[in-house]
């Protein structure tokens, strides 16, 4: 499972500093899909990048399968698979070469890597374009390769950053199937998105981020009870309409961390 505690990231210092993520805490259990939701600029991607070790947190801790990011920032990356809509592919490599490269990068033995790649080819249906240069693939095909790449080392935590951005209905459906499969296999999943209706379909629990702070957390029912709104969209619109009030309810992160 993944456990995020009091994660904070500040860019710059002095008067011009920006607090991109402010004291964010949440966790995702095995077989649970956690939605980290918020409008653009809420701090979702920054939080994700800190979990991935791409950004060094100003303070706070991330623990995955007992590894702590402040102690073993490289080791923790072995447990994480990243799916990002914006992630590109190496255009002159074929999907098979890409999968082999990432398998070797995660230190998989040759036999185990072959087995994993064979399974993923089957699962993501990559067979028909396995040896083609990535530059010639369609958007949907690229997305499938990206999903397979994220799972090549069989991570216990999968992070999805705007996974359906730029995809059509069929493409989005592939992603939904993908997430459900991951859930069934007992992985902890964190989905970052601003597509609130999609998130409502996918996630078990939600964390609502605004201006770097987590202002609500819980299951859909918890959130409905707390906000008096029916849908996630309405909850966000409510907060966005009254920005000054949203600042006043920012004591939530503390209470949410206590749940953990």
């Amino acid at each position: 499972m993944i456990c995020v505690e009091h994660l904070t990231k500040q860019f710059g210092s002095g008067a011009g500093h920006v607090l991109a993520v402010d004291n964010v805490s949440f966790h995702a259990n095995y077989g649970e899909v956690y939605g980290l939701l918020g409008p653009n600029g809420a701090g979702k991607t920054t939080t994700l990048r800190m979990i991935l070790g791409l950004l060094i947190p100003t303070s706070g801790e991330v623990t995955i399968c007992g590894s702590r990011i402040t102690i073993d920032p490289i080791g923790i990356k072995r447990h994480i698979g990243l799916v990002s809509a914006s992630a590109g592919l190496y255009q002159w490599l074929s999907p098979l070469e890409i999968l082999e490269y990432f398998a070797a990068s995660y230190g998989l033995s040759r036999e185990y890597a072959q087995e994993r790649i064979r399974k993923l080819i089957e699962l993501m249906d990559l067979g028909s374009f396995l040896h083609r240069r990535s530059v010639t693939l369609s958007t949907g095909q690229k997305q499938r390769v990206n999903l397979a790449r994220a799972l090549v080392h069989d991570p216990s935590v999968v992070l999805l950053d705007e996974p359906t951005r730029g995809l059509d209905v069929i493409g989005s459906n592939v992603v939904f199937e993908f997430v459900r499969n991951l859930q069934k296999s007992g992985k902890s999943i964190v989905v970052c998105t601003h597509q609130l209706d999609e998130a409502q379909r996918l996630c078990d629990r939600f964390g609502l981020l605004h201006r770097g702070r987590l202002f609500q957390e819980g299951t859909l029912q918890n959130l409905r009870d707390a906000t008096g709104q029916e849908t996630l969209v309405e909850m966000f619109l409510d907060v966005l309409r009254k920005p000054e009030e949203s600042d006043s309810v920012l004591g939530f992160p503390e209470s949410s961390s206590e749940e953990i």
Binding site: L52, K77, A87, G88
Partner: peptide
């Protein structure tokens, strides 16, 4: 520029 840096930096390799 090709948006592959993020996945590269996310690898557990110095």
């Amino acid at each position: 520029e090709r948006d592959t840096l993020e996945t590269l930096v996310a690898l557990p390799v110095p």
